[in-house]
Design a binder for these strands. Sequence first.
DNA 1: TCTGGGGTCCTAGGACCC
DNA 2: TCTGGGGTCCTAGGACCC
Length: 455
Amino acid sequence: MRDTASILHLDLDAFFASVEQRDKPSLRGKPVVVGGLGGRGVVSTASYEARPFGVHSAMPMHEARRLCPNAAFLAGRFPAYRAASRIVMGVLGQLSPLVEPLSLDEAYVDLAAGPARDFSVAALRDLAEAVRAEVKAQTGGLTASVGLGSSKFMAKLASEAAKPDGVVVIAPGTELDRIAGLPVRAIPGVGPMTAEKLQRLGLTTVTDLRAALPGELRRELGPAVATMLTRLAVADDDRPVSPDREVKSISVEDTFAVDYREVAVLEPMVVRDAATVGRRLRRAGHFARTVTLKLKLANFASHTRSRTLLGAVDSDETITAVALDLLREQAHLVRQGVRLLGVGVSGFTDAAQEALFEVTAAKLDESHVDWLPTVARERHAVYRPGDDVAHDEFGPGWVWGSGLGKVTVRFETRDTPPGPIKTFEIDDPKLRLREAEEAEVPEAAAGGLSAASAP
DNA sequence: TCTGGGGTCCTAGGACCC
DNA sequence: TCTGGGGTCCTAGGACCC
């Protein structure tokens, strides 16, 4: 904790849904739900119009459809979200070199590491408003909530209080009063399980925590959580804003529409996922020593099996061979029914030591490779609701829905009024998917914010 | 037609080493 | 002849976050 509110937390409001509304004029002011559209999907983001119906993140999609049947249900366009995120992070980078992104839509900034400026509450509020205006201008209308405080905890609490589309500064000196009556759940790191344990100890508010017996907390929650809670309960938080945190693991996982009970059916999935992980690993410029296979069973129990190699690797062949080995060792689990399969790597180094890879690992059986085209075809090919498309005659638009060999498109973009809907054969040669990047906003103009925020 | 996907961090036990 | 003790690495599971 410091004596100025110089840590900033920015959170884009209903981010994925807001990008969709920006790019799809007919959805502005209407309930929009972005998430997995398969039978087992969950909600990623619900627009503010959908929330009064009870729709919220992490809710099963079928429940969201029941609660709000008239919402637009979209699969999501990550390239567009990444492009918008880059612009926002660029705006924050003009404030200070210390920017720590937490996800595509959230970041901390340590203003004290930036240029000298006025850290009075009033000046910080003005600065936050300038940041929000700049984000809105550069992203084509996305709104952000900004919180400022004397620590990460306070800044985050402030931005939550600022939602949506606002600014809150927690003045230095008011921290203890600010959090006293809050439920323990308001403390970062206290989730459902920890809250439940605390409840059993009779601790429901931050004030209760301050009076808790240290020994009891430690015994029930472990030393790390107990220490963190004890400190955060009195707003004692010196966690630094750290940019460039290194990635420690890379993984891919898939939940299937139905449960699979045979190793042979899962093998091609492992081959595909291992290749995806390998590609991402090489793009990151890393080599990994540990390969992990994850299975989630029909009963929802999840199991991981990992193997650490003598050397660090980055080839699809090696990752695949190890992951297949791990899968085959778990045939007894697979027979119980697998709903999710994942492949991951960790234990990164920057230098290869492929020569040290154990020769005893299973060789990649050529027969699996034959499966690959089939699996891959399943994945693309379809027009998913929300996807960007272009038609040779009607121009750019987005997929409104598809099925029964037809695809329905609404022809509009972020710069047009709401547009007309037309239906085509799914194999209409004049219709094609449009890379989201094509449609995205131009490079951020430099300097706008520094002008707005000059001391 | 229950319950995603991508991560981080912590814990606990066993192997191994000095 | 009761079996210290600390440190690191690996594995598996779980809580939590967005």
